Simulated assay, not measured.
Amino acid sequence: MNKKLLLTCLFAIAVRTAFSQTAFTPGSLSVLRVGDGTATLGTAALPVFIDEYSTSGKLIRSIALPTAFAGKNKRLTLDGNTPSVSSFEGLLSLSQDAKKLSLAGYDAAVGTDAVVASESDQTNRVIGVIDGAGNVNTATALNIYSKTYIGSAVTDGNNVWVAGGSANIYSTTIGSTDATSIIGRSGRSIRIFKNQLYVSQSSGLVGPLVTIGTGLPTSAPQTAVAVPGITINGTSPTGREFFFADINPNIPGYDVLYIANTGITDGITKYSLIDGSWVANGTVKGQYTGLTATVSGNEVTVYGIKYGATSSELFKITDNTGHNGSISALTRSVLAKTGANTVFRGLSLSPQKP
């Protein structure tokens, strides 16, 4: 076999290996990491990884998102540390059936300067979808959110909803190059709970967490409705990832809600549903981006990402205060920290194979 043919075969094997991974460990955590430790966290595009951790903080493996074209897969990179932007990006969402993990980024080469300010017709915004077997799909490339950030995406298995920095929330499908604006409102974390689309928002005065339409809408016009009882802390909402839990058997549906906020006085705030309205149950102060949780009886283990422009932490909080119990006195237990020139952003339970 001549050298050129050998190199071609080795490259094909490497591409196939890179984007067809082994299955995620049941019950593990998926953390989005920006940076590989070599380049400074600045305004340039950096490589993105999904780090799989055990719930005790052991690193199981890392999945690299593409930094070069591979078949239909596009590149997916993220900003390193653009002020007032980086905490909006790299948020994660798990599909309702827990089979697919979604994220969003830029079809830009590593090192592309000022990637957030790029024109989206030249630098498409890309949706990444990773299934429970570890297969990565970055074929969804969209001309949206020009000159601003793309924050997050969520899928129901085929349809995808996307939130970002301009006044539009979009609907599309996996592999598409077109997207439909369903409402004129910017957003940060976008997730699905019990067949309802929710988004933490950064525009408007409706509230820090809103429903978008009824169910899972794919066409315009839709209406944003505030989750009842939750007011904006300060002058603007700072909500990032959020999680609903059902711990009180006497209340139908979800009755506890946790929201991660980057405003330090907002912290991680817990709410409980009382007579149809959400009532605040205290705050663990700090700046946070990622959040997910597991529920066992009336105990909730909250996992989160403590935000930092150049460093961050994966941690857990054990909330055994139950429905309508305050979390203000609870403390964080750090599970992992980032190294030099790397930062965590989003957090989710890992996708699982059927």
Rank of each mutant, 00 (worst) to 15 (best):
G128E: 01
L103P: 09
I274V: 14
L335Q: 06
K194W: 01
S54M: 12
G304V: 12
K194H: 00
G35P: 11
S54T: 15
S312R: 13
G304N: 15
T331R: 08
G290C: 11
D178G: 05
G282W: 07
Q287G: 15
S146C: 13
A117N: 13
Y307E: 15
I144A: 04
L273S: 00
A179V: 00
A153H: 06
I232P: 03
I60M: 02
A70N: 09
V295T: 15
N158S: 08
N135E: 12
V279A: 10
N250I: 01
C9A: 13
V34M: 11
G239Y: 05
Q201R: 00
K100C: 03
I130L: 12
Y303C: 06
K58N: 13
A245T: 04
L209N: 07
E89C: 07
S311A: 15
S152C: 02
S171K: 08
E299S: 07
D275L: 09
A163H: 01
T269P: 12
V115G: 14
L142V: 08
G290P: 11
K74R: 08
I169E: 03
T265E: 13
G325S: 05
D266M: 00
I268F: 04
S120A: 15
A108P: 15
N143Q: 15
L76I: 08
S272F: 02
R16M: 12
G184S: 09
K353D: 04
N168S: 01
I192E: 10
T223L: 01
G297L: 00
A14P: 13
Y258T: 06
N81I: 01
W278G: 00
D178N: 10
P217M: 03
P47G: 14
G134T: 09
D131P: 00
L7D: 01
D255N: 08
T82G: 01
Q287K: 14
K4S: 11
K4R: 07
I63R: 10
G234V: 07
T265A: 12
G184D: 09
L7E: 08
V206C: 02
T231D: 12
K147R: 08
L103Y: 01
V295G: 13
D107Y: 02
N233I: 02
S236R: 02
T22F: 05
S348G: 04
